[in-house]
Amino acid sequence: MTHQIALSESMRANLAKSSQAHKYGHGHAVILSGGAGQGGAARLAARAALRVGAGLVTIAAPTASFYEQAAQLTAIMLAALPDSYSLRGLLQDERLNALCLGPGLGRKRALEMVPAALWGARATVLDADALTAFDEEPEHLFTQLHERVVLTPHMGEFRRLFPDLADALSAPETPLSHKIEATAKAAKRAGCTVLLKGAETTIADPSGRTALHSATGARAAPWLATAGAGDVLAGLITGLMARGLTPFDAACTGAWLHVEAARAFGPGLIAEDLPEMLPRVFREIGL
């Protein structure tokens, strides 16, 4: 049975922090960055991860963009990450418990870094370039995925990875139940949680659990159709997994917060505004 995502006591409890909390108790998220001039998407994801409550957030950047990133960051930390060998070394530190790959990463860097990240068996979000880099051979990606991964495709990316499932959704008046079913089949095939983005976002995990987040009607947020909004969602989910939420719960909570932040800001929204609205959302739900 598919449940409609809404604020619940369990969600509020997952978001709350103890009065005895310290930064090391809320995880350390690592966001991989792309090359020179491509670092903005990683910064959006990192800002979202930090705002949603990850204790520490680091951007891991290639040498070519290291100083560009350094000039833009304050509370977010920075590490040099020239190659996949370096990523495997970085992941020897078990305190680094959540990863985000894709936003602004670049296809070539994604093909190198994604296998190394999945080797580390951390809670991992794969978005954007980390998905499209494998469009010619999606099975090569699927064989490396594990249950602590969340894939966050929009419909175009979903089609590249799951063309047969996407074909069933191509008719203009396709019932929502078909999208839920396709997402569930994708999660089972990939062996991880899948969040299929849209005004009606569907989420499924390999066990068969499904959820729907509908941003329509009174909850519509059409201004989310802006560059970088998806990078923020990827960062929210990563930050929530760094805090200890399961992939499925992090995906559901991240989708709800994403829309709430957009609705709190309103028309004129750009992606940079989304993380900055989270404190207001948290106050409104009593955190």
Results as ranks from 00 to 15, higher is better:
residue 74 T to I: 11
residue 116 A to K: 12
residue 125 V to P: 11
residue 232 V to M: 09
residue 134 F to Y: 15
residue 58 T to K: 07
residue 113 M to E: 03
residue 128 A to D: 03
residue 244 G to M: 03
residue 262 A to I: 01
residue 268 G to M: 05
residue 149 V to R: 12
residue 286 G to E: 04
residue 220 A to E: 06
residue 235 G to S: 08
residue 100 C to M: 00
residue 182 A to M: 02
residue 117 A to Y: 06
residue 242 A to K: 09
residue 66 F to Y: 14
residue 189 R to Q: 15
residue 73 L to M: 13
residue 145 L to P: 03
residue 200 E to V: 15
residue 157 E to V: 00
residue 126 L to D: 09
residue 215 A to K: 04
residue 245 L to T: 10
residue 153 P to N: 07
residue 39 G to N: 07
residue 155 M to C: 10
residue 267 P to F: 01
residue 261 A to C: 15
residue 170 S to Q: 14
residue 169 L to M: 04
residue 64 A to C: 09
residue 287 L to M: 14
residue 219 R to D: 08
residue 258 H to S: 04
residue 168 A to R: 13
residue 208 G to W: 12
residue 208 G to C: 10
residue 110 A to T: 00
residue 6 A to T: 13
residue 172 P to H: 03
residue 22 H to N: 13
residue 131 L to R: 01
residue 232 V to D: 02
residue 43 R to H: 13
residue 202 T to A: 10
residue 42 A to V: 02
residue 207 S to W: 08
residue 163 P to W: 07
residue 73 L to E: 11
residue 192 C to P: 04
residue 128 A to F: 04
residue 259 V to Q: 03
residue 54 A to P: 06
residue 52 V to I: 15
residue 172 P to S: 12
residue 138 P to E: 14
residue 244 G to C: 04
residue 224 L to Y: 02
residue 182 A to T: 03
residue 224 L to E: 00
residue 48 A to W: 08
residue 84 S to L: 11
residue 48 A to E: 10
residue 5 I to S: 08
residue 148 R to W: 08
residue 79 A to T: 13
residue 8 S to Q: 05
residue 246 T to E: 11
residue 139 E to G: 14
residue 23 K to M: 12
residue 60 A to T: 07
residue 272 E to K: 13
residue 55 G to P: 12
residue 250 A to S: 09
residue 60 A to I: 08
residue 18 S to C: 06
residue 137 E to F: 14
residue 261 A to L: 01
residue 150 V to A: 00
residue 50 L to P: 07
residue 276 E to Y: 04
residue 276 E to I: 09
residue 225 A to L: 02
residue 155 M to W: 03
residue 218 A to W: 12
residue 1 M to K: 08
residue 188 K to S: 10
residue 184 A to Y: 03
residue 190 A to K: 03
residue 224 L to Q: 05
residue 2 T to C: 11
residue 223 W to D: 00
residue 266 G to D: 11
residue 93 D to T: 09
residue 271 A to M: 10
residue 167 D to G: 00
residue 53 G to L: 00
residue 40 G to V: 05
residue 283 R to A: 15
residue 179 K to E: 13
residue 27 G to S: 05
residue 120 G to I: 00
residue 251 A to T: 01
residue 24 Y to P: 01
residue 147 E to V: 06
residue 147 E to Q: 15
residue 203 I to C: 03
residue 31 I to G: 12
residue 131 L to M: 02
residue 133 A to H: 10
residue 45 A to K: 06
residue 111 L to W: 07
residue 206 P to K: 01
